[in-house]
Design a protein around this nucleic acid. Structure first.
Length: 255
DNA sequence: CTGGGGACGGGGCCC
DNA sequence: GGGGCCCCGTCCCCA
C-alpha cells in the first residue's frame, strides 16, 4: 500500500471544488495562499503543518526519491492529517481532513513507493489478454490479488485491475501516440497539446493545465511553505527543495 | 544552486 | 464493477 492517500482517505469524502477554491478565498489568500488550498481555515497551515525535515525518517530523506511513502513521519508532527491537509485543497475538504480520525499509526500503512515503471516489463512478461490478474484465494486472512506484471499485491480485484491499467496503458493520445493508464491522465496530457489551462492561480492569474501544478504553485505564494528545515527553520514549497537544502549542508545531520 | 513549472503516475473514494 | 475525479507525490528541466 504505497502512498499517503491512506491518510487522505479519511477526509476524501468531500470533493474539493477547485473552481471555488481558486476564488473563494481571495482575501485570505493574500495572506495565506496555502489556506486557500486547504480551505478558508488557514489555521491548519499556519499552526505547524510545515514539515520538519529533521523528523523525517532517514530513509525518507535519503531515498525519498523512490520511497516517499515513508512520509508518515511528518504526519505525526502535529496531526495525523498534516500531510494531506496541508497540501490538500478546498475548505470543506480540509475540515474533513482536520477531523479525520486520528488513526493510531497511519504511518505503518505506508510502504515504500517504488516509482517502478514496469510498464515496459509487462511486455516481456506475458500478454495482457492472457490473464491479467492472478487471484490468490487466500481465504484465510485476506484475499490477495497479485499483479502478474509486477510484485504488487492488492486486496481487491478492482484495485488490481486499476493497477493493471498502468501496465496496459489503454488510453492513447491520438496526437502523439503516448499511452496512459487512465482517461483523465490522457486528458491532462492532451492539454499539453491544446495549451488549455483550466486551473488558474487566484493570486497571480497564472494558469495551469494540471491541478497538482497549481497546488504546487500556490505554495510559492505561501508565507510559510509546507516543508520546513529542522535546522534553520527555512521553509520550502517542495520536498525536493528541502532535500536539496538539507543535503547541501544546512542540515547535514538530517541527511 | 535554488526555486518553480510542466508532465505524469497511481491508489482511494464517490457516483 | 467501472468511470471519473481527487490528492499526493516525483522527476525533469529551465530560469
Amino acid at each position: 500500500m504505497p502512498r499517503s492517500f491512506l491518510v487522505k482517505k479519511y477526509f476524501a469524502k468531500q470533493k474539493p471544488n477547485y473552481s471555488e477554491l481558486e476564488c473563494q478565498n481571495d482575501t485570505s489568500l493574500e495572506r495565506y495562499p496555502l489556506a486557500e488550498l486547504s480551505s478558508a481555515d488557514n489555521t491548519c497551515f499556519t499552526t505547524g503543518l510545515v514539515w520538519d525535515l529533521s523528523v523525517l525518517p532517514a530513509l525518507y530523506l535519503s531515498t525519498s526519491q523512490t520511497e516517499p511513502s515513508a512520509t508518515p513521519g511528518p504526519l505525526d508532527l502535529s496531526s495525523p492529517s498534516s500531510l494531506s491537509s496541508s497540501a490538500s485543497s478546498s475548505g470543506e475538504e480540509d475540515e474533513g481532513r482536520t477531523s479525520d480520525p486520528p488513526s493510531p499509526e497511519p504511518v505503518h500503512t505506508y510502504a515504500p513507493r517504488q516509482r517502478m515503471k514496469c510498464t515496459g516489463v509487462m511486455a516481456h512478461i506475458s500478454p495482457p489478454e492472457e490473464e491479467e490478474e492472478r487471484e490468490t484465494p487466500v481465504t484465510a486472512a485476506r484475499p490477495a490479488f497479485l499483479c502478474k506484471h509486477c510484485p504488487k499485491e492488492y486486496t481487491s480485484l478492482g484495485a488490481l485491475k486499476m493497477h493493471i491499467r498502468s501496465h496496459t496503458l489503454p488510453c492513447v493520445c491520438t496526437t502523439c501516440g503516448k499511452a496512459f493508464s487512465r482517461p483523465w491522465l490522457l486528458r491532462g496530457h492532451i492539454r499539453t497539446h491544446t495549451g488549455e489551462r483550466p486551473f488558474s492561480c487566484p493570486h497571480c492569474n497564472r494558469a495551469f493545465a494540471d491541478r497538482s501544478n497549481l497546488r504546487a504553485h500556490l505554495q510559492t505564494h505561501a508565507e510559510v511553505k509546507k516543508y520546513q528545515c529542522g535546522v534553520c527553520s527555512r521553509t520550502f514549497s517542495r520536498m525536493s527543495l528541502l532535500q536539496k537544502h538539507s543535503s547541501s549542508g544546512c542540515c547535514s545531520t538530517s541527511v
